[in-house]
Amino acid sequence: MPQAVGVIETLGFPAVLAAADAMVKAGRVTIVYYDIAESGEQVVAIRGPISEVRPAMEAGIEAAETAPPNGKLVTYYIVPNPPENVIEVLPLQYTDRVEQFRLM
């Protein structure tokens, strides 16, 4: 089954938390990456089947945009069926740490 990667970047932790929560509730996706970017920006990445990542991302985008008090969606992107070299080079693979949460 083709996999996709979805990434959301927000300003502030409440917005990224709201986005991550909404994404895992809206689709069979796994959070594979989270980190702090620059100037208070946060990044969260998900993986899963293409048909599940799209609605999960839509829910995450909406949650990030409406997160109180000062949450802000900075940017987002979906990569349907990324090539293996992208997955190997960027921190987007299913690790042992997240494997237990992976939904097949």
Rank of each mutant, 00 (worst) to 15 (best):
Thr95Glu: 07
Ala45Ser: 15
Ala22Val: 08
Ala26Gly: 11
Gly12Ser: 12
Pro49Gln: 13
Ala67Val: 04
Ile8Glu: 02
Ala59Thr: 03
Ile78Asn: 02
Ala15Asp: 06
Glu62Val: 06
Arg47Leu: 13
Ala56Lys: 00
Met57Ile: 10
Pro82Ile: 04
Gln100Pro: 13
Phe101Pro: 09
Glu9Asn: 04
Val79Cys: 14
Ala59Tyr: 07
Ala63Lys: 01
Thr30Tyr: 02
Thr10Asp: 07
Thr30Arg: 01
Met23Pro: 03
Glu41Ala: 05
Leu90Gln: 00
Asn85Asp: 11
Arg28Gly: 06
Pro91Leu: 12
Val86Ser: 04
Ile78Trp: 00
Tyr33Cys: 13
Pro69Met: 06
Pro83Ser: 05
Val89Gln: 03
Ala64Leu: 06
Ala67Gln: 03
Ala18Met: 05
Ser51Gln: 13
Val29Thr: 03
Gln93Leu: 04
Val7Pro: 00
Ile61Leu: 12
Ile61Ala: 09
Val29Ile: 09
Val44Thr: 14
Gly48Thr: 01
Gly48Lys: 01
Ile87His: 03
Pro55Asp: 08
Met104Cys: 14
Gly40Asn: 09
Val53Pro: 00
Val98Lys: 00
Thr95Asp: 08
Arg102Cys: 13
Ile31Val: 15
Ile46Gln: 01
Gly12Arg: 00
Val16Gly: 02
Ala45Phe: 12
Val74Ala: 11
Val89Met: 02
Thr75Lys: 10
Met1Cys: 08
Pro80Ile: 06
Glu62Asn: 11
Val16His: 00
Asp21Tyr: 02
Leu73Val: 05
Asp21Leu: 03
Asp96Ile: 10
Lys72Trp: 03
Arg102Leu: 08
Glu65Thr: 05
Val29Asp: 01
Thr10Met: 06
Asn81Cys: 07
Glu52Cys: 03
Val53Gly: 00
Ile61Met: 15
Val7Glu: 07
Met1Gln: 07
Lys72Thr: 10
Asp96Gln: 14
Gln93His: 15
Gly6Pro: 00
Ile87Thr: 09
Ala20Leu: 08
Pro82Ser: 06
Pro55Tyr: 03
Thr95Ala: 05
Val79Trp: 02
Thr95Ile: 02
Met57Glu: 04
Pro82Val: 07
Lys25Gln: 12
Tyr76Glu: 09
Arg97Ala: 05
Gly6Val: 01
Thr66Ala: 10
Gly40Trp: 10
Val98Ser: 09
Asp21Ile: 06
Thr75Ser: 13
Val79Lys: 04
Ala18Pro: 01
Leu103Cys: 07
Asn85Tyr: 08
Met104Phe: 14
Glu84Gln: 08
Ala18Gly: 11
Ile61Arg: 15
Val16Pro: 01
Val86Met: 14
Ala20Met: 11
Glu65Val: 04
Met104Val: 15
Ile61Cys: 03
Gln100Cys: 06
Asp35Asn: 13
Gly12Glu: 00
Val86Ile: 14
Leu73Trp: 00
Val43Gln: 03
Ala20Arg: 01
Ala56Val: 05
Lys72Asp: 12
Leu90Ile: 01
Glu99Leu: 15
Leu90Cys: 02
Thr75Asp: 12
Pro14Thr: 11
